[in-house]
Design a protein around this nucleic acid. Structure first.
Length: 297
RNA sequence: GCGUCGGUGGCAGAGCGGUCAAAUGCUCGAGACUGUAAAUCUCGCGCCCAUAGGGCUACGCAGGUUCGAAUCCUGCCCGGCGCA
């Protein structure tokens, strides 16, 4: 039996300091960082997505930043594929991959599931299905795959559409297979008290605005990213673009955005709470011990 | 001072005699998550016991009318507007 690839996974809500910890650990143990952030993969989404700057990287190599065009969706499967490649790459160089990010689903996809159903998105079908009532979609899924229908959230249109898409291709939705043994993962989670996190989020938003967040969104739009797409990208991109379109005053935008980011942080936490292997840390110091122990294991 | 409109749950805002613990939206809380995942979606949100359900206190304050009042009447307090 060959030894499993060692990987460090750093998770936590937005603004909790994942990027810093990742760089710090990478320096200490000889690692490279893989970003697991569904918005930082896009070129041009810098300030709003909180992408690390060259300076913050401090010479540590980062993967999966700026690998996609903002107008095309970069999927969980794309992430999985490229992240796997990066992991191989890094280990060939004798270094340790450190995956840091806030996208829970992507972590699960990469580290804990066997594979996603091998059905690429079918744009035409999706457009067509989007015209149907939610109830109809659910009824169709029920016919195609009663088991999946039973478990699915019957109000969640995107999920219903995807499930139908899979059924049309494979007959039914394959059962989800978990596989946690591909890698030897040390899970580190950054825990920040609610009030402190909220304050950090507000402060950071202020800094982002000062650094030119609004101009960034305007630039993206000018470069051909549609308003619709900016809206779908969420948070900063959603509310700043609404402001640019005159639908939100700057003050209102700021307040709404603060609330939205705080809510997002909460949603992230409900995802991470499910992952029982996470070692929750209050301060970076605690990470050192865990990491050295685990490396010597 | 007179007239007038209004004071409803964390906020905004419906309700204008019974079916009202009170629509709806937001905030807030909990949660889901099989290729959009910063997306999308669900549930809860007066208090108390509780599975269903039941009890209690509530719609500025104090009285009154009524079998029954957030809803009608009187007085008071507070706010907007108009006239002085």
């Amino acid at each position: 039996m060959n030894r499993q690839q060692k990987i460090i996974a750093i998770v936590g809500p937005t603004s909790s300091g994942k990027s810093d910890l990742a760089v710090q650990l990478a320096k200490q143990i000889g690692g490279e960082v893989i970003s697991a952030d569904s918005r930082q993969v896009y070129r041009g989404l810098d300030i709003g997505s909180g992408k690390v700057t060259k300076k913050e990287m401090a010479g540590i190599r980062h993967h999966l930043l700026d690998v996609a065009r903002p107008s095309a969706v970069f999927t969980a499967d794309d992430f999985k594929r490229q992240a796997k490649k990066a992991i191989e790459d890094i280990s060939k160089r004798g270094k340790i991959p450190i995956i840091a990010g806030g996208t829970g689903f992507w972590f699960e996809t990469l580290l804990a599931t066997e594979s996603l159903p091998p059905v690429p998105p079918d744009k035409k079908l999706r457009v067509q299905l989007a015209k149907q009532e939610t109830m109809e979609l659910f009824a169709e899924l029920k016919k195609l795959d009663p088991i999946r229908a039973k478990a699915i959230d019957c109000h969640n249109r995107p999920r219903l559409i995807r499930a139908i898409e899979i059924c049309r291709q494979l007959g039914t939705v394959p059962r989800k297979k978990t596989n946690r043994r591909q890698y030897d993962v040390l899970w580190l989670g950054l825990l920040v008290p609610k009030e402190i996190l909220a304050q950090k989020i507000k402060d950071r938003l202020k800094r982002r605005l000062a650094r030119g967040l609004i101009a960034e969104v305007r630039r993206l739009q000018a470069q051909g990213v549609s308003w619709r797409r900016l809206y779908d990208l969420g948070l900063e991109y959603r509310y700043v673009s609404l402001h640019l379109r005159g639908q939100l005053s700057k003050e209102k935008m700021t307040v709404t955005l603060e609330q939205a980011i705080i809510k997002y942080a909460k949603r992230q936490m409900t995802w991470f709470k499910r992952e029982k292997q996470i070692n929750w840390l209050n301060q970076f110091k605690q990470a050192d011990l865990l990491v050295t122990d685990w490396l010597n294991d």
